[in-house]
């Protein structure tokens, strides 16, 4: 029971991270194509500036919770995905430094170098996280001691690459919608057109991923076993369609929410499909990490559960306040950084 609760919290934290950091990563990739002049660039900076750091902490929380609740998973997962995870971390460093130091840079050349770094640093994490989670859904070659018997190339299988593309497109759409929420005029127009185009590609990729899941993974077993859980993929599909409807009506904030719901439920579809596994072994099912064989002791789970139950609602409250505090179009609140 305790372990199952932790399984859900684990999945939810990763899903929330993707949902929140998704828009600023996506926007980081799109900004060279959407921002045409310095005014646009300033607007893009302001749409990300107050939020990216708070969003990225969800990754620290997801990592910390993985460590606290499922230390064996933490160890096996992060060492198996060694190169991918390192690339993600370096990209996130590059991203953050580009946002803040790029803003401080003097001269057009340096500024454009930093913008390029921002695009690269924002491009890699979505794609690589997609590859990582697709491989988790599919299973990786780990033995009974949790030692990974593959190479980086093992992880770059077609299914995982589609997963990477899926994550990238989800984040790109999310970022384009956020920019449309926070700006107006020609910049918003470009973001809106970009969003419609990405949406088409996303729906196609999502459908392909779902079909591949049926052949490449065991994710569907639990859904066939308990049809009530089919609500999760249905919400994902519905949220994707609703996103398009709101885009059509130029209701950007609602479209962004629908996009958030689609990211959250697509990730949760995969996570719930794993249960009771956390990381399937493609060598032999007995080597798979489950919520039972990789969890912390009941006491450790209870202590961390208490902390999470107290602090996560507090965090959601004050982050929600910050989003409202910096709500509205970016021009409306004065830019004044010391």
């Amino acid at each position: 029971m305790l372990e199952t609760a932790w399984f859900l919290i684990w999945g939810v934290l990763w899903a929330v991270y993707f949902m929140l950091d998704g828009f600023d990563l996506g926007l980081g990739v799109l900004q060279p194509f959407l921002a045409k002049d310095d005014r646009d660039r300033k607007a893009v900076y302001l749409t990300m500036g107050p939020f990216w750091d708070g969003n990225e902490v969800w990754l620290v929380a997801a990592g910390g919770i993985t460590f606290a609740a499922f230390p064996v998973l933490y160890a096996v997962m992060f060492s198996s995905f060694y190169s991918i995870l390192m690339l993600i971390l370096f990209a996130l460093i590059l991203r953050a430094v580009s946002i803040e130091l790029g803003e401080e840079a003097k001269g057009a050349v340096w500024k454009s170098v930093w913008r390029g770094c921002l695009a690269l640093g924002s491009l890699l994490p979505p794609f690589l996280f997609g590859i990582m989670f697709a491989n988790i859904f599919r299973g990786i070659p780990i033995d009974g001691s949790g030692i990974y018997h593959g190479t980086l190339v093992t992880l770059l299988n077609p299914y995982a690459l589609v997963g990477g593309l899926l994550f990238l497109l989800m984040f790109l759409l999310h970022g384009a919608l956020w920019l449309a929420v926070k700006t107006d005029g020609p910049l918003q127009g470009r973001a809106a057109r970009m969003a419609s185009r990405i949406w088409l590609a996303l729906v196609f990729t999502a459908a392909m991923f779902l079909i591949l899941c049926a052949f490449q993974t065991e994710l569907f077993a639990i859904y066939l076993d308990r049809p009530v859980l089919l609500a999760i993929p249905l919400v994902a599909v519905a949220a994707l369609l609703i996103t398009r409807i709101w885009i059509g009506r130029a209701e950007w904030f609602k479209a962004w929410w629908a996009s958030s719901a689609s990211i959250f439920s697509i990730v949760m579809f995969g996570v719930v499909g794993l249960y009771p596994l956390l990381l399937p072994s493609s060598l032999d099912n007995v080597f798979s990490l489950t919520v039972h064989n990789s969890a912390s002791s009941p006491l450790a789970l209870k202590i961390t559960l208490g902390v999470v139950l107290v602090f996560i609602p507090i965090i959601v409250t004050y982050q929600g306040w910050v989003y409202r505090f910096f709500g509205g179009k970016v021009d409306e609140w004065a830019y004044d950084k010391p």
């Binding site: 990592g63 910390g64 606290a68 961390t304």
Partner: peptide
């Protein structure tokens, strides 16, 4: 991880 993990999670 049973001891070290929760401390990092609490910090975050």
């Amino acid at each position: 991880g049973d001891i070290f993990g929760p401390l990092l999670a609490i910090e975050a």
